[in-house]
């Protein structure tokens, strides 16, 4: 299946200054397209949590988004290190964030929980030493 992305953005490891730019851009795009505001809010939250996880926990990656009849699809793909214990990672409060990251307000261990709660469909593919691919879909209304 070939996707036509409405957004495609490289996310660099540790780049907190730009953290949230991809999500912000997607939010503006969806607003211009006249998407329902509750759908936009859910999309923004999911994208932002995915984007920050790439910055904080991975070696860098990509955020991509597409719209189809199914809804808004968000793709997060990174270059590793992968998530060793996925079940643990989805537990509220579980976080491997450093003290420095926690001081900035991240590391509650709630990002994946939020992603799950706000998306209508979620698929996670992760391989230790390779990377993580997450696809989230938010239905239009």
């Amino acid at each position: 299946m070939k996707e036509k992305y409405i957004l495609e953005k490289r996310i660099e490891k540790g780049d907190f200054n730009k953290g949230g730019e991809a999500s912000s851009k997607l939010k503006d795009l969806l607003r211009k397209l006249g998407v329902d505001s509750a759908v936009i809010r859910k999309t923004a939250i999911v994208t932002y949590e995915l984007e920050m996880n790439i910055i904080i926990h991975s070696e860098g990656g990509w955020i991509r988004a597409a719209i189809s009849r199914e809804g808004i699809q968000i793709f997060a793909a990174d270059d590793g290190p992968g998530i060793a214990d996925l079940e643990k990672a989805f537990q509220p409060g579980y976080s491997t964030a450093s003290d420095q990251v926690r001081e900035m307000g991240f590391g509650a261990g709630l990002g994946l929980v939020n992603i799950k709660n706000y998306s209508d469909e979620l698929k996670v593919d992760t391989k230790t030493g390779v990377g993580t691919k997450i696809r989230a879909i938010i239905h239009l209304v």
Binding site: G19, G20, I45, M104, F106
Partner: peptide, 13 residues
């Protein structure tokens, strides 16, 4: 919190 991420977070919702 006082860093820019707090504004980003606010913006999202």
């Amino acid at each position: 919190l006082t860093n820019p991420q707090v504004v980003r977070t606010a913006e999202m919702i």
